[in-house]
Design a protein around this nucleic acid. Structure first.
Length: 481
DNA sequence: TGACTATTGAG
DNA sequence: TCAATAGTC
C-alpha cells in the first residue's frame, strides 16, 4: 500500500513517527504543502524570515529523501487530490497544535475517511500531549513551575530511528522549490544568513552536538548573557521539526550521565525545552492566544497605536542601547538572544504603550524561529496578560538590564557600533553621560545616535497608571484568566 | 525569568 | 556616602 506522508513542522527523517509507520507499510509519497494565507484564511501566516528558513529546510529534506512533492495551495483540497492521483491507500502526518491547523486537519481527516483511506496522525513535536498533563482537578496547568514539577521526572519515550527501509515512490507531481517563492523579495535582507545557520536535520543535530560539547557548561548562569555563546540556538530547528524535543531530551540526559558536573545546567536547559511544551499546551487549550488576552482583564489596558514609536522600535532607533542592539540583531540575523527578547518586548509594551500584538506580528515576520505558540505565549507573558505567576506588574528597566546582562557592553558595541567608543560605565545610558565623554567617543546624541524617544521614569509611571484599569477590570469580574 | 524606595550600618 | 537588605507593588 502506498502511503502519503504529509510533512508540516516535522522536516526530519529520524524520530518521525508518521514516516516511520508509513515506511513499514510499503512505498511512501512524501509531500509538503505551502499554504497561501489568502486562500486558507490563516490570519497568522509564515513570516518572511520563516519562509527563508523553510526554503532551505525543504531543500535539505528533499535531498535526504531523494524526492519530495511540493505543492502550493489549500491543503484541504490539495492533499485529497494528491492522495487520489497517486492512488494512496493511507495518509499519515504528525500533529500540529494551533487552532488553524487543528481545524484544517480535522476536516481533511474526515474527508479522507469518506474516501475510505486510512488516516493516522502522530505526536512528533511534543514530549507530552496537552491532554496528558493535567492538574489534580483534571484541568490544564496555568502556572509554569507546577507544570515543570508535574513532568520533569516522567519517562520520555526514546526517539525513533530513521526508517530502516524507505521506498520513496517516484511521482512527477508538484512544483519546484523555486515555484514556492519562499526567498525574500529583498535579497539584501537574508544576505549572509547561510553562514549563520546550518538549516536542516543534519545541521540541527550538529548544532545540538556542539552546544552540548562547548556551551552547556555554565548554561544556567550564562544563558542570560547575550554577549556569551552559552545558548543552544536550536529554536528554528525545533520550530520546523528538524530535531525533536525527544531527541534533545535523550541526548541531554546522556550528557548529564556522562558528565555529572553539568547536571544543573542540563536540567535548566531541559526546563527551557519544557517551557516550549507549556506554551504549546496553553495554545492548544486557548487557541485565541495569538490575538486575545489570556487574562481578559487586560482588555481594559489603554494601548496606544503610535506608528512613530513602533517604527523606531522596529529599526532599533529608540535611544536605549540594549533595546536597539536587540532589534538590530533581529533584523540582521533573524534571531535575538532570549534575555534581550524580554527586554525589547517589555520596552515596546510598557515604555511605548503599544499592544503586544504589534510585537508578536513583528517577531513573527522577522524571526527565523517564529513559532505561534512560543511567540504568543511569551509576548503575553511579558505583557502581563499571560501565564505569569508574578504578583506585580513587571516593567524591565533597560539600563539595569543592560548593565546586569551585558556588563562589559560587548553585545551593545557589536550591534550599535556608533556607541562602541563610549566608556562601559555610560554605555547603557548614553543620555546620562557627561558631554565630554560623549564627545570623546564621537557621539552626538540626536544625530549619530538617537536621544531616548521616551523618558524611562515617565513611561514607567504611565504604564503603572494603565495597569490600574486592568486591576479595576479584574476586581469587577468573577474570575479572570 | 523586577524595580523602586526606605532603612541600616560600615566606613 | 554608599552598598546591602527588606518591604512593597
Amino acid at each position: 500500500m502506498t502511503t502519503l506522508v504529509w510533512f508540516r513542522q516535522d522536516l526530519r527523517v529520524a524520530d518521525n513517527p508518521a514516516l516511520f509507520e508509513a515506511a513499514k507499510l510499503g512505498p511512501v509519497v512524501p509531500v509538503f504543502v505551502y499554504e497561501d494565507a489568502s486562500e486558507t484564511g490563516n490570519v497568522h501566516p509564515l513570516g518572511g524570515a520563516s519562509q527563508w528558513w523553510l526554503h532551505h529546510s525543504l531543500e535539505a529534506l528533499e535531498k535526504t529523501l531523494g524526492s519530495l512533492v511540493l505543492l502550493r495551495g489549500d491543503a484541504r483540497h490539495v492533499i485529497p487530490d494528491l492522495a487520489r492521483t497517486v492512488g494512496a491507500g493511507a495518509v499519515f502526518w504528525n500533529r500540529c497544535y494551533d487552532g488553524h491547523a487543528i481545524e484544517r486537519d480535522t476536516q481533511i481527516k474526515s474527508d479522507l475517511r469518506d474516501m475510505e483511506l486510512e488516516v493516522k496522525s502522530f505526536n512528533s513535536a511534543l514530549l507530552f500531549e496537552p491532554w496528558e498533563v493535567r492538574t489534580k482537578n483534571g484541568g490544564p496547568f496555568k502556572v509554569y513551575s507546577p507544570f515543570w514539577n508535574a513532568v520533569k521526572d516522567r519517562d520520555i519515550d526514546p526517539p525513533l530511528p530513521a526508517p530502516e527501509k524507505l521506498r520513496i515512490k517516484d511521482c512527477s507531481e508538484g512544483q519546484t522549490l523555486a515555484d514556492l517563492k519562499l526567498l525574500p523579495e529583498n535579497p539584501d535582507w537574508a544576505q549572509g544568513w547561510n553562514e549563520l545557520w546550518s538549516v536542516g536535520e543534519k545541521g540541527a543535530q550538529q548544532r545540538l552536538h556542539e552546544f552540548l560539547k562547548n556551551d552547556l557548561e555554565d548554561y544556567k548562569t550564562l544563558r542570560d548573557r547575550p554577549d556569551c555563546p552559552n545558548v543552544s540556538r536550536l529554536s528554528p530547528h525545533l520550530h520546523f521539526g528538524e530535531i525533536s524535543s525527544r531527541q534533545i531530551w535523550r541526548q541531554v540526559q546522556d550528557e548529564m550521565a556522562a558528565t555529572p558536573e553539568v547536571s544543573k545546567d542540563g536540567w535548566k536547559f531541559l526546563s527551557e525545552i519544557v517551557w516550549r511544551e507549556f506554551s504549546h499546551h496553553i495554545l492548544y487549550e486557548f487557541p485565541e492566544l495569538p490575538w486575545r488576552n489570556w487574562r481578559s482583564s487586560f482588555d481594559a489596558y489603554p494601548w496606544s497605536a503610535n506608528e512613530t514609536y513602533l517604527t523606531a522600535w522596529q529599526k532599533g532607533q529608540t535611544g536605549y542601547p540594549i533595546v536597539d542592539a536587540g532589534m538590530r540583531e533581529l533584523w540582521q540575523t533573524g534571531y535575538m538572544h532570549n534575555r534581550v527578547r524580554m527586554i525589547v518586548a517589555s520596552f515596546l509594551i510598557k515604555h511605548l504603550g503599544i499592544s503586544w500584538k504589534e510585537g508578536e506580528a513583528w517577531f513573527r515576520d522577522t524571526l527565523v524561529d517564529a513559532d505561534l505558540a512560543n511567540n504568543s505565549a511569551s509576548w503575553q507573558w511579558v505583557a502581563g496578560s499571560g501565564a505569569d505567576a508574578a504578583p506585580f506588574f513587571r516593567i524591565f528597566n533597560p539600563m539595569i538590564q543592560g548593565a546586569k546582562f551585558d556588563p562589559n557592553g560587548d553585545y551593545v558595541r557589536k550591534w550599535v557600533p556608533e556607541l562602541k567608543d563610549l566608556e562601559t560605565k555610560y554605555l547603557h545610558a548614553p543620555f546620562d553621560a557627561p558631554a565630554e565623554k560623549l564627545e570623546a567617543a564621537a557621539i552626538d546624541l540626536g544625530r549619530t545616535y538617537p536621544s531616548p524617544i521616551v523618558d524611562h521614569a515617565t513611561a514607567r509611571k504611565d504604564a503603572l497608571d494603565g495597569y490600574e484599569a486592568v486591576k479595576a477590570a479584574s476586581n469587577t469580574r468573577q474570575s479572570d484568566g
